[in-house]
């Protein structure tokens, strides 16, 4: 009887431990996503300013600017799920990247103090977003490991936990920058 109680106690402890591990990993993912979201929000707040200060100079980039405004409106809608947010963030990053390359064609804009300040702030936010993405990917990897590895996988399927997706780097960011091509534009 005593042995049975001890064994049952140990099993219970293991179950509690596994349950708490999974919960903490899931919360870690959510927590870091919230951190990422906060940085993205900062960037969204900056965009109207950016658009306002560049549109009078960048007459040929009207479409890019409109697209940026549109993406911002979409991203600020409530009840978006994580994957949609990530997809919008990716598109916006690549749009902003294009815009910053196009700035090279507008020397007067490049000398504008206000624009330079915005560009600096955006660059810094990009750094923070990249850090948050890496942190998010690590937490998702930890979480995915936990729900796929023995013995926590049983507990995870019982709790109906699914794999989460890591951020993938957009294909155009992964390629090395073709400097020659940039000059020919």
């Amino acid at each position: 009887m005593e042995t049975f109680l001890i064994v049952a106690g140990v099993i219970l402890l293991i179950i509690v431990f596994m349950y708490n591990t999974l919960i903490s990993k899931k919360n870690q993912v959510e927590n870091i996503f919230a951190g990422l979201d906060a940085i993205l929000k900062k960037r969204y707040d900056l965009l109207p300013n950016l658009v306002a200060s560049v549109q009078e100079y960048m007459v040929h980039e009207r479409i890019t600017l409109e697209k940026i405004t549109e993406l911002r409106t979409q991203a600020l809608k409530d009840n978006l799920d994580n994957s949609t947010k990530i997809a919008l963030e990716k598109q916006l990053s690549s749009m902003l990247g294009n815009l910053m390359v196009a700035v090279e064609n507008y020397p007067t804009l490049k000398a504008n103090e206000n624009f330079l300040h915005l560009q600096g702030t955006l660059n810094e936010l990009e750094e923070q977003i990249s850090a948050a993405r890496r942190a998010y990917n690590q937490s998702v990897t930890d979480y995915n490991n936990a729900i796929e590895m023995f013995p926590t996988n049983f507990m995870a399927s019982f709790m109906k936990y699914d794999r989460k997706e890591v951020f993938s780097v957009p294909a155009n960011e992964r390629q090395n920058v073709d400097v020659k091509n940039l000059f020919q534009k």
Partner: peptide, 10 residues
């Protein structure tokens, strides 16, 4: 802080 740590250690 996981995000800050990666911001510092790029």
């Amino acid at each position: 802080d996981p995000i800050d740590s990666r911001y510092i250690l790029s």
